[in-house]
């Protein structure tokens, strides 16, 4: 498999692994935005009670693993997946599969991933990569967020596969068992299903913290942070939002540009002018998110950290929520046949 494998860099690891795995089975239609959209990847949630180092958690995408499961299910792809308690058994299993020339997806922790810059290595355990072979005792690794392929030694691989903490991978590996003929109709059904589910996630989850109402929840909180937490702590909270929104893996603008690209491709499949128009709405939302990140960085670094600046962030987030709400409402009304 090592000879035929082509590494394609993507924005996000999970989308990238699915796309590369499916493409390697001769299905050239697969793209990162398509995987993201079929898996209903776009999301927003503000988790005030789950704190990372005392700072609340924010997410601009759905839970790790969901996109993969949904996309494969939509396309009737049979996936084999296994977790282990013993690292030695896990390694033997991986080696055996590689000898059968299979491409293997692995869940790993980032902290000990030696080819990442130190500044990015936190204890985050839901990263994904593809192992496409083994040479001289080293694993040949295709990490979707990296420009080029790389390698990990046996020890390094075992360490990252058995990272501990939240989302501990437990040696989790997965691969395509069987992939049938995928017709244009299958893809269209998958797209329609992905959109429908995303409308539900962004518009209809009860409670104030998720979806488009979650964005307004954050807006109201942001407005009060300066007073309640003081400028320094408030800056740390804002920094957390910026990083979740813009860091490597998001494709920019909190995944909104990636979703706009998905809708553009979907418009092609359905020959729908309307989908193309909604795609533009998400481009607009992505641009607004980036504008919001600039305001937040100004407050974080003390360039513009008056209460009026926090009020501006509040107003902009309210506008973003409205743009996305309208866009998803339009999506819910488009007949996808």
């Amino acid at each position: 498999m090592q000879n035929q494998y082509t590494h394609t860099q993507s924005a996000h690891c999970e989308n990238g692994v699915i796309t590369n795995l499916i493409k390697s089975h001769g299905q050239d239609f697969m793209t990162e935005p398509l995987a993201f959209g079929m898996g209903s990847g776009l999301f927003y949630i503000h988790l005030p009670f789950i704190k990372v180092n005392g700072i609340p958690a924010f997410s601009f995408r759905t839970m790790p693993g969901r996109i993969f499961k949904r996309t494969c299910k939509s396309l009737h792809i049979d996936i084999a997946s296994k977790k282990f308690s013993n690292p030695r058994v896990a390694q033997e299993y991986l080696d055996k599969l590689l000898q059968q020339d299979k491409l293997i997806g692995c869940q790993v922790g980032v902290y000990n991933l030696t080819y990442f810059p130190k500044e990015y290595r936190f204890h985050f355990n839901a990263h994904n990569l593809i192992v496409y072979g083994k040479e001289n005792g080293n694993y040949l690794v295709s990490d979707p967020v990296m420009e080029n392929v790389t390698t990990l030694s046996e020890v390094e691989m075992n360490t990252v596969r058995f990272a501990k903490g939240v989302f501990a991978p437990k040696g989790h590996l997965y691969y395509i068992n069987k992939i049938g003929d995928i017709t244009k109709e299958d893809i269209k059904t998958g797209i329609a299903k992905g959109i429908k589910r995303n409308v539900r996630d962004m518009l209809h989850i009860p409670g104030p913290i998720a979806g488009v109402s979650g964005i307004k929840y954050t807006a109201r909180k942001v407005k009060g942070w300066r007073e309640k937490l003081g400028p320094r702590r408030a800056g740390q909270y804002l920094g957390q939002i910026i990083r979740m929104q813009e860091e490597i893996g998001t494709g920019g603008g909190g995944f909104r540009f990636m979703y706009a690209a998905f809708l553009e491709q979907a418009a092609g499949y359905f020959d729908s002018k309307e989908l193309l128009e909604v795609s533009d709405e998400f481009t607009k939302a992505g641009d607004m998110w980036r504008q919001s990140a600039m305001l937040m960085a100004g407050a974080l670094r003390g360039r513009a950290s008056e209460q009026s600046d926090y009020n501006n962030m509040h107003d902009l987030l309210y506008d973003i929520s409205d743009v996305e709400k309208e866009a998803f409402k339009r999506l819910s009304k488009i007949k996808l046949k």
Partner: peptide, 22 residues
């Protein structure tokens, strides 16, 4: 006017967020 991917070396706004986290 069509979507494409491009490469970025980084964005000062998010570097500020990462630097300040460190």
């Amino acid at each position: 006017g069509k979507y494409d991917t491009g490469l970025s070396t980084g964005w000062s706004v998010k570097s500020e967020a990462l630097d300040s986290a460190w």
